[in-house]
Simulated assay, not measured.
Amino acid sequence: MKFSNVYKALFLFFIIFGLNKAYTQTSNTKAPKNVILLIGDGTGLSQISSAYYFKDSEPNYSRFKHIGLIKTSSSREDITDSAAGATAFASGIKTYNGAIGVADDSTEVKTIVEIISRKKINTGVISTSSIVHATPASFYAHALYRGYYDDIAVDLVSSDIDFAAGGGKMFFNQREDGKDLFKELKSKKFELDTIKLGTIEEISNHKKMAYIFGNEHLRPAAKGRGDYLPRATELGLQFLSKDEKNPNFFLMVEGSQVDWGGHSNNADYLISELIDFDDAIGKALDFAKKDGNTLVIVTADHETGGFTLSSTIKETEDGEKYSDYDEITGTFSTGGHSATLIPVFAYGPGAEEFIGVYENTEIFHKIMKVTGW
């Protein structure tokens, strides 16, 4: 009887000890102070795979250990567009295709930028498209339709964004209403540059910074844009973290034109943009590794083009066709989007939360959970 009580006491002790240990481990888990969300528009698994065959160096995707998958359908359609997909990331809700920062019933929803700016967390958006295009717009604007570019530009001016880089000058200074939003940006404490990216030494004294290049979108990487995206990513990270008293931030970086290569069924265009996006991922990971307090998330809103890395079809001297398994050709099944599941890669504090299969809206909720924002 006595031994039985002793065993019971020991059993209870080990249970309590184990629970306390588990609680301590959970409660002591480090929360990220910064988040970098990189969105490769239209980038599915085959697009990512292309980097492993066509990039001259090891892809930065290889640096991730925590990987998941998201379901991307919008509130009304099986296949999402970029507006609904980005709104899911920015606000954690499903909405209809074409919606920017509004719910399925057309009511405005709070974006992560609006939520965390009140907590004195710096925010930024970077894209290779117009800065008022669907993906970046979903993080700071509210519009019933993604094509209301003039209205979205007004929302950028009045937003709490601290760093912006992308295209779209025409939506700021060539407007139907005659307004000069560049002047209004400056009145909102933005320093503006429409010529070239600066250095952190040149812009470190500015409160806010906006780089708006190109009349509408930026050129493709292979046709004059060069290394803009990785450079803008590095500069944005330096700018948003420059103040010792207020160094914490959220930055969204979009590789916009992977999607456009998919829409045009142009494999060379797609692959060059994907490699450029991978270089931007490298800048984010380098910052996170050095900083130690930064969570990096890489994903996409949807896949575009039904892209596949197929064997190259060749012909023998007799005219017989065959598949050459030693040579890869990028092929497509559609000129639009597809419903395939999309990979999610995470690095840094909280990365383990992004393992599994879940809805695209969970990107927002998981960010808010691990950061405590």
Rank of each mutant, 00 (worst) to 15 (best):
Y61A: 05
F332W: 11
F54E: 02
G372Q: 12
K183G: 00
N28E: 15
L197F: 07
Y211T: 10
A280W: 05
G124L: 06
Y52V: 02
T304H: 08
S333G: 10
T334C: 08
A339H: 09
L270G: 07
S127V: 13
S4F: 14
F287N: 02
I152S: 13
T312I: 08
G98Y: 12
K33V: 04
F345H: 12
Q174K: 15
L240D: 06
I195K: 13
I313H: 00
S323C: 00
L185A: 03
R118Y: 07
S272D: 14
S256F: 03
W373K: 05
H302E: 14
G168S: 09
I161W: 08
D105Q: 02
N246S: 14
G305D: 04
Y61G: 02
M1F: 12
A84C: 05
H302D: 07
T43G: 00
G168D: 02
L144P: 00
D105S: 06
I161N: 01
A221P: 01
K245S: 15
F364H: 15
G214D: 02
A141D: 06
T329V: 07
G98M: 02
G336I: 09
E176S: 13
D227S: 14
R175D: 04
H66E: 14
L192R: 04
V298G: 03
G236F: 11
S264H: 11
G147T: 13
A232Y: 09
F354N: 04
K223Y: 08
I271L: 04
